[in-house]
Design a protein around this nucleic acid. Structure first.
Length: 228
DNA sequence: GCGACAG
DNA sequence: ATCTTGTCGC
């Protein structure tokens, strides 16, 4: 494999290329509606890992009803990740298996395709304005919202936050904010409002369910590595 | 120079 | 991301 330095240069070029396809606009009718009427399905994705293992993970996709957040579809699969985690390049590590899950859904239950996807991580709020939510958005062409639980220390953070990210105190009980940013085919304003309506707790329900269920899967189906 | 740095 | 139970409080 190439040295990490070379790989990063290649990734930076790829991000710059794909960045041009990000649409920071509301492209769907429901996004223009004050109460999001017409929105019926919201998706969420997440990956969970086992303690000392950073190449095998459980990739989870859920689709919930809107606005009631009831489970419509769920898919879970053990995957092998090909790229290491490098801050700022999460998409190259996590997007491939998540895109596969979306592809599977499109082939087997196209009627359950989510109309918008919540992604665990940033969108335009990113060093090169191309976080995981943009990566997934462009490659799937699905409207995407990035929701990060921690602040990514981007150069000029304050300016970035003003322009395409918003710290949101999603629920009354939570002091710690989440950081919402545009992934694809949605405005920041719509992304923030939508996130708010999907939060029962701090993290939007689609992401929360994907997270809970993927961990649950690992608990029940994966023996600890030292047992096998 | 050292640390910080989405998941 | 993950290692980790109970516990205090609204």
């Amino acid at each position: 494999m190439a040295l990490e330095g070379e790989m990063v240069l290649k990734w930076e070029r790829e991000q710059a290329r794909l960045r041009e396809s990000v649409k920071e606009e509301d492209t769907e009718d429901w996004q223009r509606s004050p109460d999001f009427s017409g929105l019926e399905r919201v998706g969420g994705v997440d990956l969970s890992f086992i303690k000392g293992n950073d190449i095998n993970a459980c990739a989870h996709l859920v689709v919930l009803t809107y606005p009631h957040m009831k489970l419509l579809y769920e898919d879970c699969k053990m995957v092998t990740l090909n790229a290491p985690y490098v801050a700022g390049f999460l998409g190259f590590r996590e997007a491939p298996p998540l895109l596969q899950a979306l592809e599977k859904l499109k082939n087997e239950q196209p009627n359950l395709m989510p109309q918008v996807l919540f992604v665990d991580g940033n969108g335009l709020f990113h060093y090169r304005e191309f976080g995981l939510a943009c990566h997934l958005g462009v490659l799937s062409d699905l409207p995407c919202v990035g929701v990060a639980k921690n602040l990514l220390h981007v150069e000029g953070v304050l300016r970035s936050e003003e322009h395409h990210s918003q710290a949101l105190r999603s629920s009354q009980s939570s002091t710690k904010p989440v950081y919402v940013s545009v992934g694809h085919r949605i405005t920041l304003d719509t992304a923030v409002k939508l996130t708010h309506t999907c939060c029962l707790y701090r993290v939007p329900e689609p992401i929360r369910q994907a997270d809970i269920r993927s961990r649950e899967y690992l608990r029940c189906h994966v023996l600890t590595s030292d047992m096998g």
